[in-house]
Amino acid sequence: MWAIVVMLIGALIAAEELPDLIRGKRRGDIWLFAALLLAGTGLGVAQSLRVEIPNPLDAISFVFAPVGKFLEALFM
């Protein structure tokens, strides 16, 4: 159910923004908008279908957690 709602919202956003964008005739703008909207809708649908979405903090932690631990060891 929620997946449909998400797609509907995506369509609404497109209907809201696209006419102005197309009138602006700037291809870059339209492409970036479309890419972001697709990403947003895709993620939204995935989330509502309870698909595991990789956690960005894990990647950051992988790099920076050792630094943090090192700092802690340094000061404590």
Binding site: L12, A15, E16, E17, L18, P19, D20
Partner: peptide, 8 residues
């Protein structure tokens, strides 16, 4: 104002 609103 965006497109959707204008259409409406």
């Amino acid at each position: 104002m965006g497109g959707l609103f204008q259409t409406f």
